[in-house]
Design a protein around this nucleic acid. Sequence first.
DNA 1: GAGCGTCTCCTCCCTGGGGAGGAGGACCAG
DNA 2: CTGGTCCTCCTCCCCAGGGAGGAGACGCTC
Lengths: 209, 209
Amino acid sequence: MIRVLLVDDQQLIRAGLRMLCDAEPDLEVVGEAGNGREAITLAARLTPDVIVMDIRMPGVDGISATSRVLAERPATRVLVLTTFGDDDHLYPALNAGACGFLLKDAPPEELLEGIRRAAEGDSPFSRDVLRRLVRRATTAGAEQRRPVEGLTPREQDVLDLVGEGLSNTEIGERLHIGVTTVKTHIAALMTKTGSPNRVRLALVAHRQR
Amino acid sequence: MIRVLLVDDQQLIRAGLRMLCDAEPDLEVVGEAGNGREAITLAARLTPDVIVMDIRMPGVDGISATSRVLAERPATRVLVLTTFGDDDHLYPALNAGACGFLLKDAPPEELLEGIRRAAEGDSPFSRDVLRRLVRRATTAGAEQRRPVEGLTPREQDVLDLVGEGLSNTEIGERLHIGVTTVKTHIAALMTKTGSPNRVRLALVAHRQR
DNA sequence: GAGCGTCTCCTCCCTGGGGAGGAGGACCAG
DNA sequence: CTGGTCCTCCTCCCCAGGGAGGAGACGCTC
């Protein structure tokens, strides 16, 4: 028997979710909360297995409520159920410790299955939320190394140090070369990378690593 | 009926997978490949719905084979099935266009369910692979905003544009303020953030977002 | 009203960044 | 040997960047 706490500011939605869960033999709705503050107190008192959590709520929102609840009882599974799957809500929710993220336009079976999977320790995500997650993880990983073709090894050294935020004299000292030499390399780097100023060059250095 | 192509260099595993799939009424194994090269040619000839792809193979590996296959037929669903769930394989595979990533130590039902979900356009992931994906996406997302205490809103505006690599005059034009005002804000930013020069300031801006 | 913080802008000054152009020495391939 | 690339360094020049210091205007709170 999976003990569920429903958190949503619209009682109509809460009622719908409760009916949905009550029809399942393995799900038991142990309580309802209309905002984040109620959710925190009810979670502490009722110790549910899974919390179905809305994000946009008056007062304490679902993100803060999630981190507060998990600070008290880390074993609780928080499943976010919200209308929009935008990144502004997704990543803060995951950072707060939510185990899954479903959209309200999903079919009811997906929610019920998501609650069960959450209770089992799995992480249920709606299809396009998962797609967004993958894209973020892969684009973050794709920017690992992009060699910026055509740089001489010495220019690469200088570029790295520019990316560290060093001045020309500091770069010269670090590489044991004169300041004018550093300037020469930097001039070459700027033309090669098409950077109009030093800060852009530093950004290129960062994008590259 | 879901048409499946099995790709793995060990024929014992291929045989096991084939037996597994043949026992299912909705799955049909249309072919087997022992390396990436075979996989590419067979995928073109057999046009399977789902390819179950191993990564470590002699000759052309599963990553390259995946991108080659998807370049020809983008609608193909490639489901990676491998022994180790390390990041070295995961992100290249996703970048290559794999739709899912399962581990070989998963229960057989998970694989069968994964093939069905892949065919439906979903993205099946093993539990700990998904956990790794979430962690990467969130740690990448955790660096969104770290407010750098004590900055006025206007200073924050200027800091953002410095981070973009704009010059003082460009910043002034963008914010509709004079260059000297920009200088004032930047001076404040440098003392507040402890940056000795503009590039370091830009790095602070980037670390913050 | 006094005080405070923020935004705006000013002047004076000077160093460092950045463009243009040249030059010598080391190395390697044709 | 010659031509090429790369690294090194030079001069001349200009201006954007950056420090110091002051000041007026607005809006807030006490």
